[in-house]
Design a binder for these strands. Structure first.
Length: 270
DNA sequence: ATGGTAGGTAGCCTA
């Protein structure tokens, strides 16, 4: 089974690009972030015509996550337990930043971690709290192959940005953010892509970042040990940053071998 | 060069 995560930065602005990529890339399940539309505005028909069922979780023109799959999805869940909200004006609202589905016995989360905006901004505290609660509830998900897939808006290593010197006082690289990311690893999750595929996953639209290859590695697939042992291959599709109207993020792809595990339980026949 | 581009929306906000 081939799974992928992609911050598409508006699913309506590049529906054809996404669906064409899904078909060409032979991807079974795609976790999307920043769909930037309400649940009912998702372009379901284009995905269904290509053989993909979509479960979406949108709210307004911002945020929004979805999962497209050509294999059956079960246990579809929106938001995680205790997910903090954000108070733009008035009372905090739980934003559409997390959803999950089970495919072929694999639990997959599509996550869009809050940006943080600025170290002094309330959004930064919201980001840290959001990650803290996420990590706190990880233990209740144990026991089966599970992956957190998405835009974490954190560059865990200095080498995950083009010039760490340009990030002094910036979000995405601060110690508390990196500690929040590390807490997920401490909880037992494994970055199943880093050792298999180097490079950035995001290049800002501004300042010619793509042309100068000034990117950031902020999109990840973190798996439980049960999932990690199924991984056979991973890649980052840089080509999707090129061409007409690309997202500022590119897809991260992971291949799982679901047969090997089954073989262990299969009776031996001589 | 302390900048710049893109999406949703119809004012600016978000990234």
């Amino acid at each position: 089974m081939r799974i992928a995560t992609w911050n598409v930065n508006s699913v309506r602005a590049r529906t054809a690009r996404i669906v064409d990529w899904l078909e060409r890339s032979d991807v079974d399940v795609l976790a999307m972030q920043e769909i930037k539309c309400k649940t009912e505005q998702f372009p379901y028909a284009a995905f269904e015509a290509a053989g993909y069922e979509v479960q979406a979780h949108g709210f307004s023109q911002w945020n929004g996550v979805a999962i497209a799959s050509r294999l059956p999805m079960t246990e579809v869940e929106r938001d995680f337990q205790g997910q903090p909200g954000y108070a733009n004006t008035g009372d905090p609202v739980v934003e559409a930043r997390a959803m999950a589905a089970t495919v072929e016995g694999v639990r997959l989360w599509s996550l869009y971690v809050p940006n943080g905006r600025d170290l002094a901004h309330a959004h930064y505290g919201y980001k840290l709290e959001w990650l803290r609660v996420l990590a706190d509830h990880l233990d209740t998900w144990g026991g089966r192959p599970l992956a957190l897939m998405g835009d974490f808006n954190i560059a865990p290593l200095d080498t995950d940005v083009w010039d760490i010197g340009a990030f002094d006082g910036s979000t995405h690289v601060s110690k508390p953010e990196r500690a929040a990311f590390d807490a997920l690893l401490q909880a037992g999750l494994v970055d199943v892509v880093r050792d298999r595929a180097p490079g950035y996953t995001y290049w800002d639209y501004k300042a010619g970042r793509w042309n100068k290859n000034e990117g950031m590695r902020i999109d990840f697939v973190l798996g439980t040990p049960e999932l990690a042992e199924l991984v056979t291959h991973a890649s980052i599709d840089r080509d999707q940053r090129q061409g007409d109207a690309p997202s500022d993020h590119v897809p991260v792809v992971v291949d799982l071998d679901l047969e090997t595990e089954l073989d262990d339980d299969r009776p031996m026949i001589f």
